[in-house]
Structures are given as C-alpha cells and as structure tokens.
C-alpha cells in the first residue's frame, strides 16, 4: 500500500480508536506530527489522552491505522513500535524502582547490544541530566519525583527515539522542576527530535508547542494554533466546546 502522506510527516494517525471491553475509551482520532515538531495533546482528566498514547504504542487493542514515516506500525506489538523509534514515557513515569539508575538506563537501550554505542548514549543522557550521574548506583525508588521524571526521559532517550511520546511529565512535580524538565524537552526538540507532549496543564506547554490538539471525551475536539491562544479563559472556552 503506497502512502500519500507528505514526506515530512513522521507520524500519521487515521481513525485510531481503542476500547476496554465494552467501554469505548477512545473514539476514532486523526492526527499527525511532522518531522521536528513538538505537538501538544491537551484535555481534561479522563479525556482519553493516556489511552491515545497507549494506542499509538500498541499497548491496548485498537482499530485504525498508525503510520510511521509512511509505513504502517504493527498493532499490538509495542516492541515493534519501539524498534521503529517510537518511545513512550508513560504516565507515572514507569521507572523500575528496585533497580539502580544505571540499570534503568540500560533497560532504555534494551534493544541495543553494543557496549561502545551504549557508553556513548549514556554519556549523552548524563550530560543532559547531570543529577542522574551522581545517583547512578542508587536505586531508582530512592530518587525524588523530579529525578525520577528525568530518569524516565533519560531512559527513553537511551534508545535514540525518532519520536518521543510523553504522558503528563508534570504530574506531581513542583513548578520549578516542571520548568526544568520542559526546558530540556524544548532543547531536545530544537535538536530535531519530534515530540508528542500530553498535558492537563495546558498553559505550561503552549509556549513550547508548534501545534496542539484538544481532546475531549475520547475524541479530538479541535486543532489549535498555540499562538492564537492568548489567555487561559480562551482555552477554557475550547474545553467547554
């Protein structure tokens, strides 16, 4: 099947829906991400943002299509999606608490079996998050929330993803830490990494995003240009439809 997608599209999603048993958690969704874009997915609690991320990864049963650089991503095969370079930093970070920081990073590059390349990537991640360097031998469970989020992002970077999906990285963190993390994400994006950033706290990410989708009750309500949103109130208008 030949794709008609424009060559600059890194991710194109058509009619992607997901259901848990009889409950339709995500109504058919269309969205796309261009190479080098940072796309925000906004929406209130329960709008289906996490389901959308899990659906893209193939962690939940889905219908519809996900295309990566014009090629269909196999469904229900998160390992295959990860192999293509689609990597998710899940909600709640999903770090492996009983393992050390170093072991967590190693797991990020699980598909890699090359010591030199591994060392190079580790150095790169530690340069980006120097605080992790001091904590390498500590168990991940003993880190602070902010450090855990840095570890989760660092671990995802270990696989050198082509597109990074982040599910509510600000959850439970102090504003100062959130700023720091968002700043790192902006940096990564400027280096050319495509990113989908899921957030409930919209104002935080609108400064950063090239485009934004508004998700409400399991489907896309609107696609918005962040530059046109001037106030919080205006966004609330969108939420309420």
């Amino acid at each position: 099947m030949k794709s008609i997608a424009t060559p600059t599209r890194i991710l194109e999603i058509e009619g992607l829906s997901a259901r848990y048993g009889h409950v339709e958690a995500l109504r058919p969704v269309d969205l796309h991400v261009d190479e080098g874009e940072l796309v925000a997915v906004l929406g209130p609690n329960g709008a289906g943002k996490s389901t959308l991320m899990n659906a893209i990864m193939g962690l939940v049963p889905t219908q519809g299509q996900v295309k990566f650089r014009g090629r269909a991503v196999p469904r229900r095969a998160p390992a295959a999606a990860a192999g293509l370079g689609i990597v998710l930093v899940p909600e709640g970070r999903g770090i492996f608490a009983p393992m050390t920081v170093a072991e967590n990073l190693e797991l990020g590059a699980y598909l890699l079996n090359d010591k030199h390349e591994y060392a190079r990537r580790t150095a790169r991640v530690l340069a980006m998050f120097p605080r992790l360097k001091e904590r390498l031998a500590q168990t991940a469970g003993s880190l602070s929330g902010g450090e855990q989020q840095m570890l989760a992002v660092g671990r995802a970077l270990m696989s050198e993803p082509k597109i990074l999906l982040l599910d509510e990285p600000s959850l439970g963190l102090a504003p100062r830490i959130i700023d720091e993390i968002l700043q790192k994400l902006g940096e990564l994006n400027r280096q050319g990494l495509s990113i989908i950033l899921v957030e409930q706290k919209a104002p935080l990410v609108l400064k950063l995003a090239n485009r934004a989708y508004l998700l409400s009750v399991g489907s896309i309500a609107a696609e918005i240009d962040p530059r046109t949103i001037k106030s919080h109130d205006e966004l609330v208008q969108y939420y309420l439809g």
Binding site: N54, M57, L59, P78, A79, A82, G83, V87, L88, P90, R93, G94, I95, F96, A97, P98, M99, E103, E106, L107, G108, Y110, L111, R155, A156, S159
Partner: peptide
C-alpha cells in the same frame, strides 16, 4: 541483561513493553 528484563517486567509490564521488552 536477562535479569534486568525480568525485574523490568515485575516493575511495570507496560513500561517494559514500551521500551521494546
């Protein structure tokens, strides 16, 4: 490597699968 994959599966199946395990 094997042992780390085991512990990862114990920690969070979804997170481990999202990492390609």
């Amino acid at each position: 490597r094997l042992g780390r994959a085991f512990v990862a599966a114990a920690g969070s199946e979804d997170a481990a699968r999202a990492l390609g395990i």
